[in-house]
Structure formats: structure tokens, C-alpha cells
Amino acid sequence: MSATIFGPRIMLIGGGSIGRVGEVLAKLQVSRPLIVTDPFMVSSGMIAQLTDPLSKAGIAYDVFSDTVPDPTTTVVSAGTERLRSGGFDGLIGFGGGSPMDTAKAMNILAAHGGQMRDYKVPNGVDTAAVPLLCIPTTAGTGSEVTRGTVITDVETDEKMLVMCLAGQADAAIVDFELTMKKPFRLTADTGIDSFTHALEAFVSQKRNPYSDSMAIAAMQRIGANLKTACFEPDNRAAREQMMLGATQAGLAFSNASVALVHGMSRPIGAHFHVPHGLSNAMLLPAVTKFSLEAALDRYAQAGRLIGAADAKDSDENAANKLLDWLYQTNEDLQVPTPPAYGIEEAKWTGLMETMASQCIASGSHANNPRIPEHGEIVELYKQVWAANR
């Protein structure tokens, strides 16, 4: 069986690598980029980590900083108009997954027009308007290396997955030093998000030897360094390993697809505005428990890779030790349940059927080792609400 592998043309990885942004843009023949970022990056002055080396390289730029935590069609439309009217020959997505996803969506709409819903899975396009450079400032989404972007349709409250070649960044700069000041909650949520990417890619029905190699490396790195990065935020070695692990996890799932956790997570984000990594963390133990028997050997190997189990454990024991590790990690990293997050029970219950339908419509559930029926997804939402173990 052959596998088609996607990734950026250029990847610059390592501490301080953002200082070479001018070199990367020169290779892409970009002389006037539009930076897509979020308001905090501007107000905090963190954007200077990008704009200072741009200015030093003599590169003119402008900034679109109206992105929101869950990118919406409204913001994408505004950004697309800015891109079209400003005479820009490139884009830089700078920040977490939201700015990078927004930049990708803008690039697709600027090239092809229409509405963002026109390009959601299974539809897609191969070409974008301008070269795109993605620079992550969190160790989590992997968006810098994926073909995917997730955008919320404000008219339907649907969190749409767009997965196509036009969503692939042309280049990525992966500089762990950009994550050094990230707070505990963000480090935890993005770290669990990246682990979810790796684990789902590893058990996905679309997996392949390349995606396996990236998923295995990512799980080893993240399993060994996640809690250290959270509880020792100045630990450079842990931060570096988490950043590289997140990028490898992004390469893994972009070439194998995510599965049921992500399918169930997107509706939670759309309806309740729970950050993506956090909603993944809420779901991961329960969905893994549901899926365990359908890929026992894979989950067992994952348990061994992260050090929760060893070679002496049977597959059943190793898989169950992985599950215990997931529950314990949520406890250690203070991942709230939906009610603890402040979600109203009546609204959660009332939307479970809709969320299950949206999960199925995304297609991600079909990549899961155990493919759930609609009613089983509803039951999983019930379990996650009650934090049933």
C-alpha cells in the first residue's frame, strides 16, 4: 500500500530560529507579508519577536490581529478582504492554532472565493493565493505542518474541518523559545492536544508507516516531558521536546487523520467555546476506553512508549495502564469536567444529539478503531459530562 505524504516545503527548527525569518521569506519570494495573529500578541509586545527580525531584514509588513480563539467565518472574511486589498505577496500565521488556521482559511478564500463551508471535508482545493509561513507559539496544534484548518460557521454553529492541499503551509519555523512564557493552563491543554494528535494518528484506520514513525516519536517525547513543561515552565529541555513532539504529532495526524476524539471535540468548541486542546482532554480518556478493544495492540504499544507500561506487561495490561495514565494526567493537570468548566447541564444534554450528528458529519469518527453509531456518541457525551470512569 502506498501513502501520499504532505508537509511544508521548508522547516526551520530550533531555538532562536525565528531570527532567520527573513531567509525563509526570501526563499518563498515574499517581500510584503501580512502577519495574522491575535490581539494578545500585539498588546503584550510578543509580536516584536517576529517584527524585529523582519524590520532588520528590511521586509515591509502589516498586521491583521483580529483573530479569535475559535476562528469564525466572520473573522476569516474580514481577513480575506484585508489580504486581497493590501497588495500582499505572502502570509505569516503567528501564534497558536487559531491565527495559523485563520491564515490558512484566508488564503483559500482569497484564491477561490465563495464561503468557507464550500471547502469543508470532503470538499477541498489544491491551490492558495500566496505563500504561507506558519510560526507556532504554543506546543500543541501542529497546524504549522498540517493541511487542516478548523473554522466555525457563525450561521450554523458548526465547527468545520477543511483538509486539503491549499491548507498546507509552504514553510514553518518551529522555535521552542517562543513557548517559554506560556502559562500552566495553556501548556497543559496544548500538550494534551498534541498527545491526542499522536495517539489518534497511531490508531487511525488511515495510518501508514510514515505517520506511525512521527506518532511514535511524538508520544515518546510528549509522554516524557508534558508534566515537566507544565510544572517547571523554565525547563528549556522539556519545552524543546514538547515543541518538537507537537510538530511531529502534527505531521502524524495530517498524514493519517484524527479520529473520534476530534470528531466529538469540535462541536464542544463550537457550542460552548471550550478551547480545542481542553475539549480534547475532557474526551480523551472516555473515548480511549470506548476504543481500547478494537486496537488493543496499538494502545498497548502507546502505553509502553510513554513509560506507563513495559515489555513485561501483556497487551491488555499495557493498554489499561495507558488508560490509567490518561485519567491520572487529567487529574494532575487539573483538566475540568464540562460542569466544572461552567457548562450548564440542560444545554449540554439538549445539544448532545446535535453534537453527535455534527461529529458524524465531519467524518473523523470513521477513522476510529471502533466506529461508533450515533447513539454511542451520545452516550459518550453523557459519560464525559458525569466524568464516569
Score class of each variant (00 low, 15 high):
L133T: 08
G245H: 07
Q334E: 15
Q168G: 07
Q248K: 01
Y381A: 07
P275W: 00
Q328K: 11
R236F: 03
A218S: 09
A270I: 10
Q29S: 15
Q220V: 07
D62E: 15
S98W: 00
Q220R: 13
N235L: 01
S213C: 11
R20G: 08
A229H: 05
T196G: 01
E158S: 11
P136E: 01
R32G: 01
A386M: 13
Y210W: 10
M264L: 08
N280C: 14
V203H: 05
L34C: 05
T288L: 12
D313P: 06
A318T: 10
K27G: 10
Y210C: 08
M160N: 12
P131V: 07
S55M: 10
I135W: 03
K321N: 09
P39K: 05
G95A: 12
I371W: 00
L50P: 00
L380A: 04
E240D: 14
G307E: 05
M180G: 04
L380D: 08
Y381E: 10
V130R: 10
E23F: 00
I35S: 07
R239N: 04
S31D: 00
G375F: 02
A26S: 15
Y299P: 03
L186G: 00
A171C: 11
Q328V: 07
A218L: 04
A259T: 11
N330S: 08
W348S: 11
E331V: 03
S194Y: 07
P369S: 11
T337N: 02
R221F: 05
D89Q: 02
D153M: 12
S43P: 06
G342R: 05
I18V: 15
R236I: 04
A295T: 13
A281G: 10
L199E: 07
M219Y: 01
T74N: 13
P136R: 01
G245Y: 04
M352T: 14
A215N: 02
T187A: 09
T137K: 00
Y210K: 10
T337E: 02
A229M: 12
T138G: 02
G142P: 03
S314T: 15
D310V: 01
T73Q: 10
P136T: 02
S279Y: 11
I268D: 09
G22E: 05
G148W: 07
L322M: 09
N388A: 14
H374I: 00
L186H: 00
P285W: 04
E177I: 01
D66A: 12
P71H: 13
H197K: 06
M1A: 15
Q358I: 11
I306R: 04
N225A: 07
G87R: 12
V203F: 01
N208M: 05
N367Y: 13
P369L: 06
G86I: 12
Q49W: 06
M214V: 03
N367F: 13
K56I: 10
I108A: 12
V24Y: 12
G113Q: 08
Q115R: 15
V335W: 06
R304L: 09
R9M: 15
W385V: 08
H374K: 09
V261P: 07
T288A: 09
F88G: 09
R298C: 10
V150I: 13
L284E: 08
N320F: 10
G114K: 06
K382C: 13
A188S: 03
V130E: 03
V384N: 08
Q383S: 13
N320E: 12
D66V: 03
L186C: 00
L296D: 13
L284R: 04
I268G: 04
S194V: 15
M352V: 03
L199N: 08
